[in-house]
Design a protein around this nucleic acid. Structure first.
Lengths: 231, 231
DNA sequence: CACCCTACTGTCAGATAATGGCAGCAGCGA
DNA sequence: TCGCTGCTGCCATTATCTGACAGTAGGGTG
């Protein structure tokens, strides 16, 4: 069976994912143990399957961040859970994530057989009032700070509408009862704090890297709050 | 490229999905335009890829209800939306759907590269209090009634804790602010009604088929409530 | 029990597809 | 200009898939 080929394509994709800079085809060919000519054919195959691989002459290949899901089997319950969950995200989360949910739904719906699609329409309606909480902080900036473990200068409006300024070490983003929160160590309070992103008046990037590691902060916070690791 | 083969496998799976009774290999071979020997090999391939196809001598093949997702590309936002949505379902929905969400998450996590997995752990935590609303009605029975367009005899406890008996025509199941509701035409009130499944004291199957078509009811209800079709 | 239908496996020759090497064109940067 | 790279066409070689036939085994029916 042609299992070797598809596995090789997956491996190629993973290899491509690891590099952030452009990689030459020759290098990829060597790593996947295949001739250059075949590598070009493999790239073409992946592109045909929807992978966003960009190749430029003189530079090499770059994969736009993303991920290829290999073929897999889902039970009816699993599909239903994915669809229902995506619908919830589409109407609850910030616009960036919501758009992701809509796109994911479209992709799944495109390959779902009609009977299953109709089944889902009847069994997993989402009726509640949508409460989109957009606005507020620049989530992209927060994300960047989390990834880079950098300090943020925050102007934050607390429950009593009082504006405070503080430096924080952000290490996670979460949902708390359908409100987006940034979870961070607060230098002002010398403790973990949750910041509703819609109450963040401004967040300023600093070049300071905070002195502790993100996973450690996450672990300590989890223990303090009694929150188990996510499934 | 071996695109013909994987397409054939997909088609075989779809064919298998259509039949509810066991189908003989010979029939499947004819429908997919392939020899019987190759069909056996194809079945083996699908089983190796995780499809739950059961074959019994003297009977034929049956596919356990489910669906095979072909390989596809997801952006980071889309993966994030899927994972976050599934986590929400896992902690909000009834146990049947929640189990589906957990299983789907496990399958996706199994093929996610470690760096993306860690990224998700930091950026899409679900922190809210879980409020599982289990118990109450037999959802499987309701599902069956919806599919078959059959009347249900309902004992329902309304907001004032008053128990009423009525015949209803169920045509959809939904979530309304994280509470599971059955949507039905109520013969007693001669109008559409929402029934929280945790307040359904009992639901009894009847052999009566209700006189209107499910999609029509759904459409009318949508218009009345001003709810657009789901994405 | 016999008989039929079916799932499954082994083998092997022929058909089909993938592969690698080579040559050549085109775009990018120095 | 040069070197590096992506990309395509061609073709012989190689790997894989396919179909046909034979055979084993299990289930259902009479």
């Amino acid at each position: 069976m042609t299992v070797a080929r598809s596995e090789r394509l997956l491996a190629l994709l993973q290899t491509l994912r690891r590099y952030r800079q452009p990689v030459s085809g020759a290098k990829l060919a060597a790593e996947t143990g295949v001739s250059l000519r075949t590598l070009y054919r493999d790239i073409a195959s992946l592109q045909a399957q929807g992978a966003f691989i960009e190749g430029e002459a003189g530079l090499g290949y770059v994969l736009r961040p993303g991920f290829m899901l290999p073929p897999m089997m889902f039970s009816e319950e699993e599909i239903e859970a994915l669809v229902l969950g995506s619908r919830w995200v589409a109407r609850t989360a910030d616009s960036r994530l919501a758009a992701g949910a809509v796109d994911a739904l479209a992709k799944i719906a495109a390959v779902l057989p009609p009977d299953l699609k109709e089944e889902l329409d009847n069994s997993t309606l989402l009726v509640g009032t949508p409460r989109r909480n957009d606005g507020g902080a620049d989530l992209a900036l927060i994300r960047r700070a989390i990834r880079a473990e950098h300090v943020l200068e925050l102007a934050y409006e607390d429950e009593k509408a009082a504006l405070t300024h503080r430096n924080v070490w952000p290490f996670a983003l979460g949902f708390f009862d359908s409100v987006r929160v940034m979870i961070a160590w607060c230098e002002l309070r010398k403790d973990f704090r949750h910041f509703r992103t819609d109450r963040i008046a401004s967040a300023v990037w600093t070049e300071k890297r905070y002195p502790r590691r993100r996973p450690v902060l996450l672990k300590e916070w989890r223990e303090k709050e009694g929150i188990p690791a996510q499934p």
